[in-house]
């Protein structure tokens, strides 16, 4: 077995073990904070409720990197096509994290709700081959304060 294949196997095992561990921990943290911030409402609706509000643009971003195992699985998947389920959970984590950070930003301003929430996903380092592949998610909206 050539050396580079052994390296691939070792990195994939490391990536799987640590990646899954980190993912489970991250989801737990996301769920906890989602409950915590549940009172701050978010809407992608453009029109704010009637009344006189103070407004502020709030946002939160996160850059997540794909672990080696997921990248390998996605690479194999690319050969035959189909659903790349390993990336679904990654993007789900990133989106929810970005929204939570936006909420944290709004909470520091004592906002009641965030209107017109928009989400932006960008693969910021679309490198060749083994270059870092990571995704940025940015969530932003208009926070309404009384």
């Amino acid at each position: 077995m050539p050396i580079e294949l052994i390296v691939v196997v070792v990195l994939a095992v490391l990536g799987y073990v640590f990646g899954q561990l980190a993912e489970r921990r991250h989801f737990a943290s996301i769920r906890r904070r989602e409950r915590e911030y549940a009172e701050l409402l978010t809407f992608s609706e453009r029109r704010p409720p009637p009344g006189r509000w103070q407004t502020a643009l709030v946002g939160g971003n996160v850059v997540v990197s794909v672990d080696y195992f997921k990248r390998l699985a996605a690479g194999l998947r690319a050969l035959i096509g189909g659903r790349v389920s390993v990336y679904e959970s990654l993007l789900e984590r990133a989106r929810r994290e970005a929204i939570l950070r936006m909420k944290e930003d709004a909470l520091t301003r004592n906002a009641v709700m965030i209107m017109c929430v928009r989400l932006e996903t960008a693969s910021i380092t679309k490198g060749k081959g083994d270059q870092i592949s990571s995704v940025e998610v940015y969530a932003y909206g208009t926070a309404l304060m009384r």
Binding site: M1, P2, E4, L5, A12, L72, A78, L79, D130
Partner: peptide, 17 residues
Amino acid sequence: SLFGITDSSAVRSLIEF
């Protein structure tokens, strides 16, 4: 032609092997 489909070097070394 398989290399053309993927840009993952891990997948490439697997295919080559």
